[in-house]
């Protein structure tokens, strides 16, 4: 009787060991799948103060608080079809709605995914680097002898980040540009002649 119990116990233990080993193996395979699909894709513009690249997807817990606190509702969320590492992380599509640099998202973020930044134009100018604007001179009206200059009036740091030259041609100061995307949103050319290159673009 006791030997039977002993055998049963051994059987249970063996099943437990097998289950644990199988779980570990399965999880390793799954983790490898997640990692492999995280191959560099097109980078997206993150909210201000964001960590870059895989640091961001590790730090973000996908609580959606940045998006719901955003007064301009510019923060959108990626979907599962972008891969598990990217899924439900916040991003900004400046052509739809650009960031107004209110810094509320950085204050509410419960993790270090978004570093808190004070809502002060000078602090923002030095701390925020969401991306960098660049002007496509082939598309820009002003570079093609039609005076425009709309992006200049949209820029929160006019003459510092974006200055107008002769014929209202926009020139970006890449060091001063915070990458908020208001110029891209304002651009009247389609496709946009001024675009934000996200800072999270990690060279592959």
């Amino acid at each position: 009787m006791s030997s039977k119990d002993h055998n049963a116990e051994n059987g249970v233990k063996r099943r437990e060991a097998i289950a644990i080993a199988a779980t570990a193996l399965g999880s390793l395979i799954a983790a490898a799948m997640v990692r492999s699909e995280a191959a560099p894709k097109k980078a997206v513009l993150r909210p201000p103060g964001a960590l870059l690249g895989s640091d961001f997807s590790a730090a973000c817990i996908r609580c959606f608080q940045c998006g719901s606190v955003c007064p301009s509702q510019c923060i959108q969320f990626r979907s599962l079809s972008d891969g598990l590492t990217e899924a439900y992380t916040p991003y900004i599509e400046p052509r739809e709605i650009a960031c107004i640099l209110c810094m509320k998202c950085t204050e509410i973020c419960p993790t270090d995914a978004l570093t808190p930044i004070t809502n002060d134009p000078e602090v923002i100018a030095t701390e925020v680097k969401m991306g960098t604007a660049w002007v496509n001179e082939g598309l820009c009206y002003s570079f093609n002898d039609r005076i425009c200059g709309v992006c200049y009036y949209a820029c929160p740091y006019p003459d510092e980040a974006l200055r107008l030259g002769e014929g209202a041609r926009p020139y970006i100061n890449e060091d001063a540009c915070v990458g908020c995307g208001n110029c891209e949103r304002a651009c009247i050319h389609l496709p946009q002649a001024v675009r934000i290159e996200p800072a999270s673009e990690v060279p592959s």
């Binding site: 644990i20 779980t23 999880s27 997640v34 990692r35 590790a58 996908r62 590492t85």
Partner: peptide, 21 residues
């Protein structure tokens, strides 16, 4: 325990907190 174990392994190796999914 297995679900937790799987979550811990995937979170650590894949670099994404998997529990929320």
């Amino acid at each position: 325990y297995l679900v937790l174990l799987a979550g811990i392994i995937i979170s650590t190796i894949a670099g994404v907190g998997i529990f929320g999914f």
